[in-house]
Computed example of a mutant assay.
Amino acid sequence: MIVHEMQTSLKSALQTKFKDISLISKEDAAPLPPAPYFLTELTLAEFEPISTSRYAARFRFHISYVPMEGKPVATIMDEMLEALTSLDVSGRPCRASSVAWERPTGNDGATGEGYFRAEYVIQMTTDQEENDMKMQTLKQGGGLK
Rank of each mutant, 00 (worst) to 15 (best):
D78N: 15
F61G: 05
P67Y: 00
S90M: 13
S9F: 01
E102H: 03
T105Q: 04
L23F: 01
P67F: 01
T125Q: 13
L87S: 07
E41P: 14
K134M: 12
G106T: 12
P93D: 05
S25T: 10
G106P: 06
I21P: 04
K71G: 09
P93R: 03
D127Q: 08
P104T: 01
E82K: 09
F59R: 00
I21Y: 01
E113F: 01
M68N: 14
E129Q: 15
P93L: 01
G141F: 13
E46V: 15
I2L: 15
G91S: 03
M6A: 08
L39V: 09
S22A: 15
Q140S: 10
K71T: 14
Q128K: 13
R58M: 12
G106Q: 07
A56S: 14
V121G: 02
M6I: 13
T8N: 02
V121K: 05
M135F: 15
E46F: 12
L39S: 11
Y65W: 02
N107D: 06
T111L: 03
M133D: 12
K145M: 14
L81P: 07
L84K: 03
H4M: 13
E119P: 04
S97P: 02
A45M: 08
K19P: 04
L23D: 02
D127K: 04
R60Y: 03
T85D: 04
P93V: 03
S86I: 09
L87D: 07
A118Q: 00
E27T: 07
A45S: 10
M124Y: 08
Q128V: 13
D78T: 15
I21R: 00
K17M: 06
K17H: 07
I2H: 13
Q123M: 13
M6P: 05
Q140L: 10
D132A: 15
Q7Y: 00
